[in-house]
Design a protein around this nucleic acid. Structure first.
Lengths: 188, 188
DNA sequence: CTTTAATCTTGTCAATGACTAGATCGCGCT
DNA sequence: AGCGCGATCTAGTCATTGACAAGATTAAAG
């Protein structure tokens, strides 16, 4: 299968990005090599640099894309519990994005697109938690911690035996129901 | 300031371990270089390999030590809320350990000491949650997710503006009180 | 005091990230 | 149509790194 499109690749940026997501999801970000990604895309070892500048640039692009996906997913949430389920669902569906998004030392901290995308997601979470609980900040942290912790433990394979085959999203829904549920607590 | 103890260092293993914790806590595990650690300890570039074999060996040692510390901290917990506060306190006091412990792709997955230490911590968490809630597995996941999520978000600096100067442990205590508190819910 | 094993050093190799200079190509402009 | 310019990609280089091998030094056991 010679995909030799000659000199220009056509969509190298997306090809590298996709390959990176594959590597990160299976072997983690530490195993990521720009030269390997170039090899997979069939281009020279320095080609990716033109699209991402360097390693941090690539990962920043991944994180930015991730925040976009997450915002989209959260936007369709019907209630607070559904919001959490979607948060967990995003982590399960896009593990590479999710991991990179919360690894600030690998990213360009002042990238404007990243900051904007992150801020967008943040405000969506905030407004969704609005009206629940007494102290908004506390309620926000509680809900976020819950969903984020579940997602993180899930991806680090720490819930495997606890889940025991059950669907992670369903399980989180049940789990959140116990705490945010209609009965008791300031979570209605 | 020649610390030239001659040929043998004396306690190279601990020196490398400590230097590694420093680097990981400030720049993350990706910035860790075995050769740099050797330089800091004033030994040749291959000396650390004798103690840890390779990079994964070093990080496995870090994780194992971390589980030991965490078990010790959790052992003194008085109730479920205190357990969570101690979990968060451990993450804040030993950020390098905490991070590495939950990055399986960087560790030797079959290291016996690591597995034992992890199992020890796990069983402590389990027994502490015993008797709370209906489904033990669900209760366990709920409590763990909460504490782990808060700790993770804290270390990734995602709670900075929400915390706004408040003490993380105190805040988590209040936060857990809202959910696990004496009123409502199956958490007593 | 001698043997022995642990500890550390020196030397080496392939792989990598980052950088530079130059080649090739596609697209808009006239 | 054809020209030029900027975007895209290649080729070459350098310092750094992880891993390994072989040998030097030393502490400690016998």
């Amino acid at each position: 299968m010679p995909t030799e499109r000659s000199y220009h690749h056509g969509d190298l940026r997306r090809a590298v990005l996709t390959a990176a997501l594959d590597v990160i999801a299976t072997e983690g970000p530490a195993a990521l090599s720009l030269r390997d990604l170039a090899r997979r895309a069939g281009v020279s070892h320095a080609a990716p640099a033109h699209h991402f500048k360097d390693r941090a640039g690539l990962l920043t692009a991944v994180a930015t894309e991730g925040y976009g996906f997450l915002s989209a997913a959260l936007g369709e949430a019907e209630d607070l519990r559904d919001l959490g389920v979607r948060y967990v669902g995003f982590a399960a569906a896009h593990p590479a994005h999710f991991q990179i998004m919360f690894r600030p030392e690998l990213l360009r901290p002042d990238d404007s697109e990243l900051l904007a995308a992150r801020q967008q997601t943040r405000s969506m979470l905030r407004t969704a938690v609005q009206g629940h609980g007494e102290d908004p900040a506390v309620s926000f942290m509680a809900a976020w911690s819950m969903a984020h912790g579940f997602a993180t433990l899930l991806l680090s394979r720490n819930l495997d035996d606890l889940l025991d085959g059950r669907d992670p999203e369903d399980t989180f829904g049940a789990l959140a129901g116990v705490m945010f549920g209609p009965t008791g607590s300031p979570w209605s």
